[in-house]
């Protein structure tokens, strides 16, 4: 029997989509895992700054404004009534690293918020160690009629890898800033 397993759970059931440099912020890349049943899991892309240079997480905050906490999200029934409706640039949470840098994670797609990952509040290391599985950020259910169109503005895995490889040939943006 072969040692390496063939396709992982993500490979088998999900399509990977990406959004790079979110809100114009360099390398703040997000990954959207879309299940064949249209449900989407939002995660950090492996190139996200939080996952670089051995950064540590100081705090994860789902309270995105005074009046709105993603932790208060509740859905009921098969139709998931009551879930917060998110647009593409709705913030999901803010993550502060030990170097005091703060990052906002965005919804990336339109849809109803089903759940956020509360496990990373107690164990932020999950986010660093398993960013694409146990360290996920949120689960979103796009509208049935939008399940195809929501991915229109997103990058495919190939396009993302292309962006990624072009970058490695360039300088780190922070260094560019220093030079100015």
């Amino acid at each position: 029997m072969e040692d390496r397993k063939t396709p992982s759970v993500i490979d088998r059931y999900f399509t990977r989509w990406y959004r790079t440099d979110l809100k114009g912020k360099a390398r703040e890349d997000h990954c959207i895992l879309q299940h064949s049943n249209r449900i989407c899991v939002i995660t950090l892309a492996e190139s996200h700054p939080i996952l670089q240079n051995g950064r540590k997480i100081k705090n994860i905050n789902y309270q995105i404004s005074d009046g709105c906490s993603r932790l208060k999200n509740k859905v009921s029934g098969k139709s998931k009534r009551g879930g917060q409706f998110l647009t593409e640039f709705a913030p999901l949470c803010r993550i502060t690293c030990t170097d005091e840098k703060e990052y906002t994670i965005f919804s990336c797609i339109r849809g109803r918020l089903l759940e956020v990952n509360e496990a990373i509040l107690d164990r932020p290391e999950l986010l660093l160690e398993k960013p694409s599985t146990e360290g996920y950020i949120a689960v979103i259910l796009p509208k049935f009629e939008e399940s195809k169109s929501i991915t229109e503005g997103l990058l495919t895995r190939e396009q993302y890898e292309e962006v990624h490889s072009k970058r490695t040939n360039q300088q780190e943006p922070s260094l560019v800033q220093l030079a100015l």
Binding site: H35, N37, R38, I39, V75, K78, K80, E115, V139, L141
Partner: peptide, 10 residues
């Protein structure tokens, strides 16, 4: 499970 979440309550 995520694979049935689209048609079952959470």
């Amino acid at each position: 499970p995520l694979r049935v979440l689209h048609r079952r309550p959470l």
